[in-house]
Amino acid sequence: MSDKPEEQSTFRCGYVAVLGRPNVGKSTLMNHILGQKVSITSRKPQTTRHRVLGIYTDDEAQILFVDTPGIHRKEARSINRYMNRAASSSMADVDVLLFVVDGTQWTDDDELVLEKLSHAKGKKILFVNKVDKLADKEDVLPHIAHITEQCDFDAVFPGSALRGHNLKELTQTLKQWLPEGDLFYPEDYITDRSERFMAAELIREKLMRSLGEEIPYSSTVEIEQFKFNDKGVLHISGLILVERSGQKAIIIGKGGQRLKQIGRDARIEMEELFDAKVFLELWVKVKDGWADDERALKSLGYDDYR
């Protein structure tokens, strides 16, 4: 269901913005193509808050995936406006725009992204995700027709980010549509994000996965210490910020058990990611209104959308 690109003969390198509303599988798609977790994931919308660069390199090309926060209409607080700016600004100066939608539903937020895409320049690909959940795969065709009537896509791929369906074909098309050029990053790079950033995101992922609907959106993580000792043990101190004292109590849990579990789950993944023994300490602190305070957001690293 796609136009066949020209055969590739030289090395190519370029940027692909991964766009869509919250919770359609953008980060899962990028992680699966990379073969490694670079963007955190959870079942909750708005898990991704920052633009995250994922670097895919093989003998033919280097694809620089820009994973973006989900674009959404409701901008309740400053952090929502930040996420929308981060995603929208990613549409400029990229070679390919990859629009990810859910094959099982369509929302006003999808319409908002489609409207922005229709005015953007560059190659456009539609990836219809989660089609493996459809009992009859033919049901996706009216969905695709509705979207492609509103925007001229250069290619359409139905598939599944979680199960890897049609991702090889998608990757091959992306490679062949990039401009000719040399590597932007060394071939062993998987992201341009720092290890401190990755540590904070892993802690936040465990928060998102272990808590209820409200608290994850009122919390963020700041790494206060990231240091190896003389025995090669990585000492990490993470500060979890919340907006109210009641949220602090819920995160800590009875006898501190929930916080211990969050730390245990994060530490296990950190040891694999950093290839080192990790000693992780977590604290929870109340910082009232941080998610609606532009200055506080910048101090916490929410200022990279420009």
Score class of each variant (00 low, 15 high):
P5W: 04
P5K: 06
E6D: 08
E6K: 13
Y15R: 07
A17M: 05
N23V: 03
V24A: 06
S27R: 02
L29H: 02
N31L: 08
H32W: 00
V38Y: 04
T47R: 08
L53P: 01
G54K: 08
Y56L: 09
V66N: 07
V66H: 08
R73G: 15
R73E: 15
S78T: 14
Y82A: 12
R85E: 15
A86H: 07
D93C: 02
V96F: 06
L98K: 02
V100T: 06
D102I: 07
D102M: 07
Q105E: 11
D110E: 04
L112I: 01
L112R: 06
V113F: 00
K116M: 12
K116N: 09
L117D: 06
K124R: 15
K124Y: 05
I125V: 15
L134K: 09
A135H: 12
K137Y: 08
E138T: 13
D139I: 05
V140M: 11
H143N: 09
I147T: 07
E149F: 01
C151W: 01
F153W: 09
R163C: 00
N166L: 00
L167M: 10
L170V: 02
Q172D: 14
Q172R: 11
T173W: 14
W177K: 01
L183I: 02
D188P: 04
T191S: 14
R196N: 01
I203C: 13
S210T: 15
L211V: 12
I215F: 13
I215Q: 12
P216H: 13
Y217T: 12
E222K: 15
N229V: 10
G232P: 08
V233C: 09
L234P: 09
S237T: 11
V242S: 03
Q247M: 02
K248I: 03
A249M: 08
I250F: 04
G255F: 05
G256T: 11
I262Q: 07
I262A: 06
I262R: 09
G263L: 03
G263H: 04
R264D: 03
R267N: 08
R267F: 09
I268S: 05
D275R: 12
F279Y: 15
L282F: 03
V286P: 11
K287L: 13
A296S: 14
L297A: 10
L300W: 10
Y302S: 11
